[in-house]
Amino acid sequence: MDHVIEARGLAKSFAGADAVRGVDLTVRAGEIVGFLGPNGAGKTTTLRMLTTLLRPTAGTATVAGHDLIADPAGVRRRIGYVAQGGSTNPSCTALQELVLQARLYRTPDAPARSRDLLAEFDLADRPIGSMSGGQRRRLDIALGVVHRPAVVFLDEPTTGLDPQSRSALWDHVRRLRDRHGTTVFLTTHYLDEADALCDRVLIIDRGRVVEEGSPEELKARLGGDVVTLEISGDVPHARSALAGLASVREVRVTGRTLRLTVAPGDRILIELTRALDAAGVEPLSIQHTRPTLDDVFLALTDREAAARAA
């Protein structure tokens, strides 16, 4: 079984309003896949359908080898789910929650497994109400993987955490995959999180997957590299010299600054300086920046807005 999640045309409407409109997904074993989108895009709704909590209005899915509609109990045994808003009772201790969870999954030696998880996730057996946000989030994830699921679903795992807790949590997520081969499907509205953590990113907007690829691919395809030049001499002349080059996609001028969107490549700066030389233009400064997923996101939402306007 190579595909851990396979969904076709998954859709959900709430009282006539479409929250998710036909999502297709394929996730392979051992991948970390990110579901990236703004608030209200339909990330949580999709996750709740894939984890048997919500019945889809339309569509089919196989999760961890079991059909979502025909065999929800089979799906539940093989998946873990970490909800967006937390999952623990503040008046319980960490161990109480872990042991209950382990027993409900019929994990052999539930107390030992629970103590191992406390150690693995750097936690102490304390009342959950007295834990920090980062500790509580790590406990949520530990609860989601007590039974060593084939796939774990994480809904916005780091929203609201401080930078240190975020990067600690990222390490734990990577370790789940690297050490235990767990497939991870997470949602986020942070581009840097998708960039840092995911092998593959699906961008969801208004209930539809609008783009898909590795963070690198998306950046190359939609962002392009950016070169910023400052010119001392004739700006329009420099502009026309550069705009003609095959690897330059777009030129924007603000004052003496030219902002070029270019095809990614190592030789781009050499090419640009040669063209400026030939035109007799002297650059004052030249800066090459790789795009972030933010640029991808902006490019995408621009494209969507243009498509709607047309």
């Binding site: 984890t51 789910y81 909800a83 623990t88 009772n89 969870q101 409900l104 609860l143």
Partner: peptide, 10 residues
């Protein structure tokens, strides 16, 4: 607190 939902996925 999300406890109910957690139990429902078990």
């Amino acid at each position: 607190f999300g406890v109910l939902e957690r139990l429902r996925v078990t």
